[in-house]
């Protein structure tokens, strides 16, 4: 019997958006006599699902459907509304964006150490794998150069090489990982394959139906804040395309 890696029960997320943003003291003082109504906006509505250990779990949905909010809640960045329950069994490595914390003023080498530290790698491990990272990114000659002089392709490659070193039983991957040219996309897919072989639990958010069919064991469709369909990738993708 398989055991769940992630259990989500009755998860809702409501943002309270003021009708008008008053970000400064001046604005507040000038309009203090007017009431600023806050409109609750439900971004996720009563989601319940489980992800099994070792499963490749895809999440699909239109822009603004609430996928990113769900990912941020799973990553622990946002807190769910009261009454919802999210339990994660095991260490989770969220990768919502490549190269977070990259500082353009620092050199490539310094950014590798900074970024890897933020992602949770101990310093000794970074040192051990440094050469591997550099050669994977194919940037041997540029490591002493400040990242602000990199092309966007170069910094993405470097960021990806660092992200590859992150090791956790549960991986949370946003579709940003699959941007870039086809060589790069193939590298991402090779990484997914490796994760799968290693028996990691993977949650992938993407718009790409083909990569869903290729990798995912199960797919979940979120539409207008609700869980609309979950299960066999082929069937869920069909439902998704019917949404139109």
């Amino acid at each position: 019997m398989s055991s769940p890696a992630i259990t989500v029960r009755n998860l809702s997320k409501t943002f309270r958006l003021p009708e008008e943003r008053r970000g400064t003291l001046r604005e507040r003082l000038m309009k203090f006599h007017l009431r600023n109504e806050k409109k609750p906006r439900r971004t996720l509505d009563n989601l319940s699902f489980e992800v099994q250990r070792g499963e490749f779990f895809g999440i699909i949905g239109r822009n603004g459907s609430g996928k990113s909010t769900l990912l941020k809640i799973l990553a622990g960045i946002y807190k769910p509304d009261k009454g919802g329950e999210v339990s994660i069994h095991g260490r989770i490595a969220p990768m919502l964006e490549l190269g977070v914390g990259f500082n353009p003023e620092l050199t490539g080498r310094e950014n590798v150490f900074l970024n890897a530290t933020i992602l949770g790698l101990p310093r000794r491990q970074i040192e051990e794998r440094y050469n591997e990272i550099v050669s994977f990114a194919e940037l041997q000659d540029f490591m002493q150069l400040q990242v602000k002089h990199y092309s966007s392709g170069m910094s993405v490659k470097l960021a990806f090489a660092v992200a590859m070193q992150v090791d956790a039983p549960i991986m949370l991957l946003d579709e940003v990982l699959a941007v870039g040219d086809f060589v790069f996309a193939e590298k991402c897919f090779a990484l997914f394959e490796r994760y799968k072989r290693e028996g990691k639990t993977i949650i992938l958010v993407t718009h790409s139906a083909s990569s869903m069919e290729r990798f995912a064991d199960r797919v979940m469709l979120i539409h207008e804040s609700r869980l609309t369909a979950i299960g066999n990738p082929h069937e869920v993708l069909e439902t998704y395309h019917k949404l139109g």
Partner: peptide, 9 residues
């Protein structure tokens, strides 16, 4: 801003 929105640290 960017760090806080993307990593749970």
């Amino acid at each position: 801003y960017t760090l806080i929105r993307k990593v749970n640290l």
